[in-house]
Design a protein around this nucleic acid. Structure first.
Length: 805
RNA sequence: GGGCGUUUAGCUCAGUUGGUUAGAGCACUUGCCUUACAAGCAAGGGGUCAUAGGUUCGAGUCCUAUAACGCCCACCA
């Protein structure tokens, strides 16, 4: 017997445990076709917020749907505990910087901290009903993952897509590491635009404008546009920079915008990306004046040792004092900052490991075209990113916690020595180099690489982790490619892109067939919820405790794929009502199934055919939506049917179920068979959204499998299309007659003394077939039906008011 | 500045390939304790579909432009 009230706290815990104990979501290869999902491993940086719940729930619903459709669903779950986010979390918890703690101790703390958070996260996702096989759980810094990341690196080295080179790279002097283009975030800041006078060596004065005067000591030349009438005569002359007292050539380049600033621009190594381009194009000298932690190098006269901002102020002051500062203007502009810490990025020049991006952009676009993107317009975002990428992918980070490069260098000549694949995973800091002497110079001493890999260098191998790349018993057969990648739109440029890059280099193929992109959760109108803003008003755990996981999933599953959603308590209320209704109607149905035995039956009552026909129609739409990854539209569609089922069908059939002596046993059986069959199917269809309550009801009423989540959707084939259509007209008439009662402020039980209808022949036949149901539902005493060519009309409703006493 | 998206009832959102009087939930109003459910049921009011043009017999839906908002990117002279 179902309980009078559904206690979600008790039941959700119960089924969560049951699924785990009975390995309901276990993955084992068998003869079924595999549907595989490449789930984003959430970054371990402190908190799972409502935005995660939203997008992971949507993906999870697809796993459940595919399982119901009969696929062998491969749905692993992992956590990204790698790299800078974890380090920052530990630094925050310890209140100390990594450098103060020491490399070894710090790594240990990283492991401990991420373990602790991951077990909380696992618990939260389990409570949300995530149907993953936790036995396939992975971390991005475990020995097996490190091995795969290192294998991937060595494979790319072998294939010539990865190189070590001294090259300008983006540098964060807060995190003290190089970073990749994808890790940038643009910010608008107010700054000062400084107009400074320089001179040519033959005595002409010209003005340049700069927001970064501290870079002047790094100036290597001055550019003007060759078309610039005002300045082109300067080309070829030599400029003398006052205060700093250096001389540089004046060159021409059409990239200089005549109308920006003064039209004259200084090129420093390096202030921005254009500087780097010019530096390469004109083979300019390199003057690198910043230290890694954001100071001016000591060799710069007067300014050495100052912080960047201090140097900026001092140089301006010196220019002013010397009379070379023309004017200052306040300017608002965008700067590039490091997304992890928010600090403005600089450029540094040191040896870094890069993966070649620039030579294969066309291939990446091609692979993007082979993948189906849901919603389709997300594909454009990918293309746009690939077309705009300007750098090769720098994968080395001067940090501590992450995947070590399996590399040593010859102490004398610097030749890299790579680990042997069979020795992986290795840590060059503790393991010995796999060579006795350098093959190039014969030296027998080696220095370990101290850098670690970028987070994305590791998370981009999730398909490889999933397929157990490089192992004996691997899943390469059925995971190349995987069926689906799911993530939010913000990481198309990182996770999706880099995974495609790696898949292309390793296998020459796409990593997945489909990509499903979810939208964002907005805190309020127009404000994205994000960790950095700390504007999430609701904690997932509180929500689960207050509303239940099923209700939260209702919210997560509503709305269109890829569309942003505002967190709304109202949607939660709506979900709560729906779940309550599912419970109550199930109780009602259970009550009437005490003597029911399921058997072959075709002699359905007209109204039963109507609702079965409506269900068949609904389920077609439900499947169509889900096949297009539109779980929100599917849910909406299903919900709409369900309320119709409760408010109209059940209201009609209940009389027949209660009073067999009046309606007959076979008509009653028809009703029993209908509710039995449809509730089963409704529970299945709802189960992808509400895994808990549907399981509770299923176990009580059906239980033909270990779990409802192991059943299969089989579409009905009654094809009651005609009844579905005409039955709607009967319901219309019922609704209008109810309206008449309601408008007279009367109970719906008020008898109708006389009802006169004019009906077309089809509808008349239908009502005659369902005459007992029809009369009982409306409490009709006398019914008169006249014929009409088409449509129908209600000619008279006379209510029996005497009964009200 | 570029790419993509959004704009429909007070609020949150649906609206298939263009086709009658534009839908739902919440909120609001009026009733109804009806042998599952008052966390319920029935009914009602409420919209110049962002704006301006255009295509069409017909536009919320297609085209063009504009505006506001959001996401991503480019802009450090």
């Amino acid at each position: 017997m179902l309980d009078k009230k559904y206690d979600f706290k008790e039941k959700e815990q119960k089924w969560m445990d049951y699924w785990k104990e009975n390995n309901v979501y276990e993955f084992k290869p068998d003869q079924r076709e595999v549907y595989s999902i490449d789930t984003p491993p959430p970054t371990v940086n402190g908190k799972i917020h409502i935005g995660h719940i939203f997008s992971y729930s949507q993906a999870e619903m697809m796993a459940r749907y595919k399982r119901l459709k009969g696929f062998n669903v491969f749905y692993p779950f992992g956590f990204d505990d790698n790299g800078l986010p974890s380090e920052r979390l530990v630094e925050k918890e310890q209140g100390k910087k990594a450098a103060e703690i020491g490399r070894e101790e710090f790594s240990k703390l990283c492991y401990e901290t991420t373990d602790k958070y991951e077990s909380d996260f696992q618990d939260l996702f389990s409570k949300m009903g995530v149907s993953t096989d936790w036995k396939m759980y992975y971390k991005t810094v475990s020995p097996s993952t490190i091995k795969i990341s290192q294998l991937s690196f060595l494979d790319l080295i072998e294939k010539g897509h990865c190189y070590h080179k001294e090259s300008p790279a983006l540098w964060c002097n807060e995190c003290l590491t190089s970073i990749a283009q994808a890790e940038l975030e643009t910010k608008t800041i107010k700054t000062m635009f400084n107009y400074l006078n320089y001179e040519t060596t033959d005595g002409e004065t010209f003005t340049i404008a700069t927001t970064r005067p501290e870079l002047i000591p790094a100036i290597v030349c001055v550019f003007v546009n060759p078309e610039d009438e005002k300045h082109k005569h300067l080309i070829g002359k030599t400029a003398h920079i006052p205060v700093i007292d250096i001389e540089v050539p004046i060159l021409a380049d059409e990239k200089v915008a005549i109308d920006k600033g003064t039209g004259v621009v200084m090129c420093c190594t390096f202030g921005d990306q254009t500087d780097i381009e010019w530096w390469k194009k004109y083979n300019l000298p390199l003057k690198y004046i910043f230290t890694d932690d954001g100071r001016i190098v000591d060799s710069v006269k007067n300014y050495g040792g100052l912080k960047i901002k201090e140097a900026r102020a001092k140089i301006i002051e010196d220019f002013k004092e010397a009379g070379y500062l023309v004017k200052q203007e306040e300017l608002e502009h965008e700067v590039q900052t490091h997304e992890r810490c928010g600090k403005e990025v600089e450029y540094s020049v040191m040896k870094q490991w890069f993966i070649d991006i620039m030579n294969h952009k066309e291939d990446f676009i091609k692979i993007g075209n082979e993948i189906k993107w849901y919603p389709d317009h997300m594909h454009a975002r990918y293309d746009e990113w690939v077309n705009n990428v300007a750098w090769d992918w720098c994968i080395s980070r001067q940090r501590y916690f992450g995947v070590p490069f399996p590399v040593w260098y010859c102490k004398d000549c610097g030749e890299p020595i790579f680990a042997r694949k069979e020795d992986l995973p290795v840590n060059p800091l503790s393991d010995k180099a796999p060579a006795d002497k350098c093959p190039k110079c014969g030296c027998n001493e080696f220095v370990p690489e101290t850098d670690v890999m970028d987070t994305w260098a590791t998370s981009s191998v999730t398909p490889l982790i999933n397929m157990r790349y490089g192992e004996e018993n691997n899943y390469e057969d059925f995971l190349k490619p995987m069926s689906l990648r799911t993530n939010a739109s913000e990481i198309i440029r990182t996770w999706d892109f880099y995974t495609i890059v790696k898949s292309f280099y390793h296998f020459g193929t796409r990593p997945w067939d489909n990509v499903m992109i979810s939208g964002f959760v907005m805190a309020d109108k127009g404000e994205k919820i994000s960790k950095s803003k700390g504007n999430s008003k609701v904690e997932p755990m509180d929500l689960i405790n207050n509303y239940s996981a099923d209700v939260i999933r209702y919210w997560a599953g509503s709305g269109r794929l890829g569309t942003d959603i505002i967190f709304s308590e109202e949607t939660l209320q709506r979900g709560r009502k729906l779940i309550n209704k599912i419970w109550n109607v199930s109780k009602f149905i259970e009550m009437h199934l005490a003597d029911f035995k399921d058997k072959e039956f075709t002699d359905f009552e007209y109204i039963d055919k109507w609702i079965i026909g409506k269900f068949e129609e609904m389920e077609k739409g439900y499947i169509k939506y889900l096949d297009n990854y539109e779980m929100g539209l599917a849910l909406n569609h299903l919900e709409k049917f369900f309320w119709n089922f409760c408010d109209n069908y059940i209201e009609i059939v209940k009389h027949r179920l209660y009073r067999p002596e009046e309606f007959g046993d076979t008509p009653r059986y028809s009703g029993q068979k209908t509710v039995y069959m449809l509730l089963y199917k409704l529970l299945q269809d709802f189960s992808i959204f509400f895994p808990f309550i549907t399981e509770e009801i299923y176990q009580e009423l059906y239980k033909d499998e270990k779990s409802i989540h192991l059943t299969r959707i089989k579409e009905l084939e009654y094809n009651f299309d005609k009844e579905a259509k005409i039955g709607d007209e009967i319901v219309d008439i019922i609704s209008q007659a109810r309206g008449e009662k309601s408008n007279n402020n009367l109970s719906l039980k008020t008898p109708i003394k006389n009802l006169e209808l004019s009906l077309n022949s089809e509808l008349k036949e239908a009502i005659n077939k369902s005459i007992k149901d029809f009369k009982a539902t409306l409490f009709i005493e006398n019914l008169k039906i006249s014929d009409v060519e088409k449509d129908y009309s209600i000619d008279k409703i006379e209510l029996n008011l005497e009964e009200q006493e």
